[in-house]
Amino acid sequence: MIFIIKVNNRELEWYEGMTIEDIFKIKNYTWTKIIVKVNKQVIDEENYKITIVNDGDDVQMLHLLAGG
């Protein structure tokens, strides 16, 4: 059985113990200004490594605009 979470409203395969930091690696997100919310709750950058996401969670990783 495949478990799914949503990242930016798109499905991502989930596994037990998956952290926010893991999602950054899977998605190859390297932008410098990303706001992370799990089920609408803001997660601080220093907690990415220890924040575990659960099956069915709604994760938002909002890349902010930049540039002139």
Partner: peptide, 18 residues
């Protein structure tokens, strides 16, 4: 010219404006 609107991330990555 991108100085009017640079909204690639909002659209393509964040999926905020579907």
């Amino acid at each position: 010219q991108h100085d009017e609107a640079w909204i690639i991330f909002m659209d393509m990555v964040n999926n905020q404006i579907p």
